[in-house]
Structure formats: C-alpha cells, structure tokens
Design a binder for these strands. Structure first.
Length: 472
RNA sequence: GCGGCUAUAGCUCAGUCGGUUAGAGCGCCUGACUGUGGAUUAGGAGGCCGUGGGUUCGAGCCCCACUAGCCGCCCCA
C-alpha cells in the first residue's frame, strides 16, 4: 500500500496561495497590535504537561495533545509534555517566570499555532493559529476597552463591517444566577442551557434547565430575565432615534438599558453589582476609544475556559456559527504558577475563522494572487545556461525590486513561454544567438504579446519602468 | 462523543437492473508551428473505482468493518 500523503487529521499543508492569504491577515493584525504598543512574544510549542493541566476546565483537559515520555518510559504510556492548547497559559507562565524583569505593564502579542485534539469541522482544526494580545499587571478596565478597540481596528482594517463584540462578566453571571436562586454548583449547567436560548427557544431551555437539575422557579426567573433582553433593542432604537441633541448611538442605548436591567436583577448581590459597574466602565472607556458601537452587552455570554474571572468577550459575525475570537480577564492564572497574584486580561483572534469568512466573501486584495516573479529569463540551449543565470543576477543587482526567475531546463522556447504564461509572469527575456551576438536581449510583454529588443545594459531600467512606472 | 451523507483520472464529476476492454469536461504531454505562450486542430498518457473482508458464476454498483472528508448536534478560535 502506498504511504498516506495527506497531512494528519485536522492538520493542513499551506500551499503558496494559502500562505499569501495567511501572511496578509497576520501582517494586518500585527501592525494593528503594534500601533497599540504591544510587543511580540513567542513561546515553545511544547509545555510541561503540568503547566497545562487544570487550567482549562474538564473539557479542555481532555483535548490537550499529550506527548509520551521518551526512551524506556515510553512503554508506560505516561506523558510529561504536551502541545500548547492556547497562548494565554504560556503567557501566564512567562509572566510568572520573568516577574520583575518584565515591564510593570506587560503588553504582548503572540501569533502562533496551538493544538487541540478536537474533532475537525468548518473553521475548526487540530492545529490552528491564534492571534493573542494581552496585558498583565493591572486590573484597570482600560485594558478591556483597549483590547476591544484593537480587535475592532484589526477587523476593520481587514474589511469586516458587520461584527459585534459581545461583552459579559463572570461575576455578573454568578450574581444573576445567585439572584435567581441557582445553587453555586449548578451555575455551569444553567449557563450551558441558557446559551441555547436563541437556538432552541424558551421551551427547550426550560426543559434543559430542568433536565440539568435546576429548580423550576429559578429556571422561570432566569428565562424571564433573558427573554426580555431582545425587547431592549427596540427600546434602544427609540431612545437613540429620539436623540434630542445628545449623541447616543443605538448600541450605546442598548448597553445602558442592559446595564440598568442587570442592576435591577442582581440587586444587592455584592460581587455581581461590582461586575456590572466594571462593565459600565468598560463600555464608557471603549466609547472614548471609538469602539463603543461594536460592543454589545450580552448577559448570556458564558465562554468555556475556566480561568476567566472578570469581563469576558467574544466576537460574532453573522456568517459563522462560532466566533471570530474571544477573550477575557484572568486575574488568578499567573498566581497559579508563581503564587503572586498578577492580574491580566487578553483577547484572541482566530486566524482560521477570519480566513474562512474572508475567503467566502472574497475580501482578500487582488494583488495577493499576483505572479511569483516579474520576469522569466529563458535559456537558449545548454551552452547558454550560464549566460542566462548571469543576466538574471545582473537584473537583480541593478533593480532589487525585480523578482527574477530563470527557466531551469533547455526546453523549446515555446514551452518556456507557455510556462511563463501559465504562471502569470508578465515579462519574458529571450536571449537567442542573434541577441547574444549583438549584446542585446529580447523583452517580451506577455499581456500584449509585443516584443522589443534592447541593449543588455538598459534591460533592468526598462523593466522597472514597465512594471512600476519609475524612470530611474 | 452522537446522527446523516460521501469516497471513481491531477481537478470537477457521470457510470443504467450486478454483466465482458470504466467514461466525460477541464488540466497535462506530443505534433501541425519557421526562434514565441493564450486561439484552433490531430493525437497521447494517466484509474488495484479509499482500505480490508463478505455475498455472487460475476461487484465501481449489494452487505459488514475500518479510514478519511463533508453536513447537523455538542463544544470551541
């Protein structure tokens, strides 16, 4: 049987056209993060397994790719290493490890692959890139606001217009559930069920809540709260339209209304009230950053990772069931490594999902698909190979912007032109016996089919002018 | 992890009721073409029909298992 040549399940090869797109998206995101004062970080693909275990919740633990011990221990099936599952935990480890050597506020971005032993699906792979930005060292909601602004800028620069950053808060969630009388150990169950409200409807959620052992009175109370949230949209529209001189967008009006509703429902639940207050400040600060219209407070947002302690956010677009990215505040994660409580908050954009949506909507710039070379230098026969190589080297030296390819075989000229044509190379250089004798080359413009004979010494300048219009 | 669909040439796909040498379009290669691509035209190569088993006189087609992919659920970036 021939060896399997497909990549391992859920993993992908990236051919040149794929990589052009990926590099473009990464470049835009990186430039955006840099403009907010974030610095780059890379960490190893592999972490000690105890670094990862117990950080992501039960589900996460099972999806970690583990690496068996090597050598004589291999038989035991015991793992001591694992592929990183996200970029947040490695950051927390780095912050714990380098402590005082890092700036007081450590703002870093990190764009690297992570691995999850998940089942592959649309926009979901076992190896995929995350584009993380995080700030360690402060509890200020300025961070949340700036992260939302940076993510907004990055997506806008890529051409997205219809995304929403859903915003919620772990303590607010807890407060709401407490207020409804859901026992602390049932919080997670309640959230899973409530998350499906827009999919399976009120009846379905009520059934699921009951099935998960939540008291009907509590369920009813929660449903009453969540069900009425959409109504706030209409109210918000009314308020926004009614402006009367004050500049209030629909999104802002909605957020204010939602905050008001949360205050009412949470009541005197202390941590819940504090959480609502934090949300209010995040929204205000985000407004100052110019990102307020993207943010929508969504009290039903939960997120799976267990390390979040405060604000949580997630980016949605209508095209995709999942999210384009997400993040939140994790004030205790660094402490799990060093014992020192260093607060942190971060955000992650999912490269693969962004690319899925951009590909489907045709959002990539056209020049990404341009040919790999600007000029193909053909070879006349075996004897003239050196001459063609030398001429190509001269072109590269005289016009560094020119991308020059040399045809490697002494094939018939027609075949060489056909190759240039199929590769989309715009210019071809032909050096036949006549041209060589006269110290000239023939310059063929593949688009027009036209051809001119020029002195070798002028070829670089003429090509530059034809391609870039600069008459240097 | 659960349910459904799919697997035939490099690509997209046809293949009748189970019947002999498995087809098309596109792509690729060669020629017509003299020192020149695209267009036209004449040829050509290329398939253990996903893998393994079973039913049958006979399997691309029917049955089972496995593998991989796609869609939904769950979960997630």
């Amino acid at each position: 049987m021939p060896a399997k040549t497909q990549p391992a399940r859920g993993m992908r090869d990236f051919l040149p056209a794929d990589l052009r797109k990926r590099e473009y998206v990464i470049r835009v995101i990186k430039e955006t993060y840099e403009r907010y004062g974030f610095e780059p970080l890379e960490t190893p693909a592999v972490e000690n397994i105890e670094t990862l275990l117990g950080k992501y919740g039960e589900e996460g633990n099972q999806l970690i790719f583990k690496i068996l011990k090597r050598g004589e221990h291999e038989r035991t099936g015991e793992a001591d290493l694992a592929l990183r599952y996200d970029l947040t935990v490695p950051l927390a480890r780095v912050v714990a490890e380098y402590g005082e050597r890092l700036p007081k506020f450590f703002k870093r971005y990190q764009i690297q692959p992570v691995w999850r032993a998940d089942r592959p699906a649309r926009g979901r792979f076992r190896e995929f890139y995350q584009c993380d930005v995080d700030v360690a060292g402060t509890r200020s909601p300025v961070v949340e606001a700036e992260l939302c602004a940076a993510a907004t800028d990055a997506l806008t620069a890529l051409g997205f217009t219809n995304f929403t950053i859903r915003l919620n808060h772990r303590q607010v969630l807890a407060g709401v559930l407490d207020a409804a009388g859901v026992a602390a150990d049932k919080h997670a169950d309640a959230l899973v069920a409530l998350d499906k409200l827009d999919k399976i409807g009120r009846e379905g959620v009520a059934r699921e809540l009951a099935g998960r052992g939540i008291r009907p009175e509590s369920g009813e109370e929660l449903l009453g709260f969540f069900e009425n949230l959409p109504a706030l949209e209409h109210a918000a529209e009314f308020v926004a339209g009614d402006g009367g001189g004050t500049e209030v967008s629909k999104a802002e009006a909605y957020n204010r209304a939602a905050l008001g509703r949360l205050v009412e429902f949470v009541g005197d639940n202390e941590s819940g009230a504090r959480g609502v207050d934090e949300l209010r400040r995040i929204v205000e600060y985000a407004a100052a950053c110019g990102a307020a219209d993207r943010i929508k407070i969504d009290p039903s947002l939960a997120r799976g990772l267990s390390y979040y302690t405060g604000a949580i956010m997630e980016i949605s677009v209508p095209d995709l069931a999942g999210s384009l990215g997400g993040g939140g505040r994790y004030d205790n994660l660094v402490g799990m490594f060093s014992g020192k409580d260093i607060p942190a908050c971060g955000f992650s954009l999912g490269l693969e999902r962004i690319i899925v949506v951009m590909t489907e909507r045709g959002m990539f710039p056209e020049n990404l698909e341009r040919a790999a070379a600007d000029v193909l230098v053909t070879v006349w026969d075996e004897e003239s190979v050196r001459d063609s190589l030398a001429f190509a080297a001269g072109l590269r030296r005289e016009a560094p912007a020119l991308r020059v390819d040399v045809y490697p075989d002494a094939d018939k000229l027609g075949k060489q032109l056909k190759y240039a044509s199929s590769r989309g190379v715009p210019f071809v250089v032909v050096i036949g016996e006549d041209e060589r004798a006269r110290g000239e080359v023939a310059l063929k413009d593949m688009a027009s089919g036209g051809q001119e004979t020029v002195a070798r010494a002028h070829a670089a300048a003429i090509l530059s002018e034809r391609l870039y219009g600069n008459k240097s």
